[in-house]
Design a protein around this nucleic acid. Structure first.
Lengths: 328, 328
DNA sequence: CTGTTAGCGCCTTCAA
DNA sequence: TTGAAGGCGCTAACAG
């Protein structure tokens, strides 16, 4: 690989001048600049980042840690990476297991620190990782993407409560009066939104529960619940729940001969890939993944650039979007 | 951040001795080693990778470029990252657009080169990127994850042809004799497997086509095809196609009152998240994403370590796995 | 506008 | 088993 020195030799200039020319940091005659540009191309020169980072005493890489392998994370990653690239930074990625946050995250930590990244984005909600973030942010800029706001940490989170609140209102406007909520894994925030809405609207609170984690289990449970509902004397005319659970409900309702959305509306949560492919295509609350990624990156770079060096931690909720298809 | 020098000062040893102690590269008394270990902990020392890389003249980072934002890529990424970590390497990620491989990849290239990664894994099948890989591999170890083998490049690809060939045989064993194949976006390899199998088995060749790209379009087309099939005088008793298209078929068959799998089997391709959540849950050919990731990483590190420095490029097909659920 | 000097933090000689 | 010296490729500070 060609180095600055090679360019200097080839052009007869000093390394410093070449360096300035390449970085465009002023004080170079246009003739020199042109000469350097030409030689760089000829020798296929690329600056050595390790040397730059060593000298400048900061790395131009940010690190993202994603908890679990949730498919939706890839959209966040892509958005973060895009923002980082615009700022001249690269992105390193690490994965932790959702089931063992503590051990997997701890194992990663030395690696992350060695990289000496300019900043960290942590996609996680385990108390352990939040605790670690609290320590880490003293050493380097740190932003989290979480389930809820965390007062003393910069974080971005999806306004799940508000999303479900809005969804219930949507169902109400569509004439639904017996709106049920089916709990699933990690649905606490959503439940809050549901409860607030039905109380305000004076509707009955109908809560079903099913908090299993594996996909086949969720689907089976959903089908079971649907059939149970069908047997109620006064069944709900709408159900709000996760996309996964909704796929089970749809299957169960189909089997029980109950029509969706005519007899009962089903309104999902997440807008995973499957939502639009179910039968009928699912109306659902979409996670604004790309937006969350972009916002978290923006926050991080504000910290990195020192623009918001010593200000208080900020918590940014991102609203959800209702994607209307056929099920509600 | 503490540096080697700090540890040297604190212990009264020379930087060199400290360095050797930390790297465990022999020639240190156990007393010294212990002392260094203790001080490292006290000062929370972490080696500076930029300095190490600069000195050692190689980076310990590999770069992965993923074409498009296919959700299944995240499993490959995680597998690659895990393998890399085991080798003491970190992983950087870039994304290209499937629709504009040329411009997006070209834009990335300088960034990638500046990083001076130890190796490159390219998830892509566009001729442009394959061409670029051909040049790049002269400069640094380079492995591709592709749709087909490429003679002069190290690559790993999923044996789609063999997968579909096996699937047709599975359907045959289940007593199906009129097995249709529904073409979709990029299904050429699969078609080959289908044709080979039906010819060998002496079955009629029933090919339907639908090569749209957007999910809603695919689903609609699938539903349309299903209803069209229902009207055939002598309809197929099985269909092999992508998971996405299958979701449409399932919806269409349901509407037409045709039972799956009793009247017609549906056998998917990919085992995307949605497959198990459809109604009925889809029997499908699973992409061995994690395995593909692991194998590509292994190949890359064999090249990086020089273990297989000058040997011929290798092409590794990875077999698919039939996931049997309810639709076939 | 250009060149010289002095490191960034670490590792690889080589000598003790 | 330890230490001293030199330099990886680059850039900041300072002279010209």
């Amino acid at each position: 690989m060609a180095t600055l020195k090679d360019i200097a030799m080839a052009t007869g200039l000093s390394m410093n001048t070449v360096s300035r020319a390449i970085r465009g940091s002023g004080y170079v005659s246009s003739r020199t600049a042109e000469l350097v540009r030409k030689t760089v191309k000829e020798l296929d020169y690329h600056p050595n980042r390790a040397a730059q980072d060593l000298r400048r005493r900061r790395s131009r890489q940010i690190t993202v840690v994603a908890e679990s392998y949730d498919y939706l994370h890839i959209e966040k990653l892509a958005a973060i990476k895009e923002y980082a690239a615009k700022c001249g930074y690269t992105m390193g990625v690490h994965f932790t297991s959702e089931d063992y946050p503590q051990s997997t995250f701890s194992a990663l930590l030395p690696d992350i620190l060695e990289q000496n990244p300019a900043g960290l984005i942590l996609i996680a909600s385990s108390p352990f990782i939040i605790g670690k973030a609290r320590e880490l942010r003293k050493k380097l800029p740190c932003v989290m993407i979480t389930f809820n706001g965390v007062p003393d940490i910069d974080c971005v989170y999806i306004d799940r409560t508000g999303g479900v609140y809005d969804a219930v209102h949507y169902l109400y406007k569509k004439g639904r009066r017996r709106i049920a909520f089916c709990e699933t894994f990690r649905s606490k925030n959503r439940l809050l939104g549901y409860q607030r809405a039905v109380r305000e609207l004076g509707l009955p609170e109908l809560i079903l529960s099913g908090t299993m984690k594996s996909l086949p289990e969720i689907r089976r449970e959903g089908a079971r619940i649907a059939k149970e509902l069908a047997a109620w004397e006064n069944p709900p005319d709408a159900v709000q729940t996760s996309d996964y659970m909704a796929s089970g409900l749809l299957a169960g309702f189909a089997e029980a001969g109950i029509r969706v959305p005519e007899d009962v509306s089903v309104l999902g949560f997440d807008d995973r890939e499957l939502a639009g492919m179910l039968n009928p295509p699912l109306t659902t609350l979409a996670q604004p993944s790309a937006k969350v990624g972009r916002i978290s990156a923006r926050m991080l770079f504000e910290r990195i650039s020192g623009e918001r060096k010593e200000t208080e931690p900020e918590n940014i909720p991102v609203p959800m979007r209702l994607v209307i298809r056929d099920s509600a």
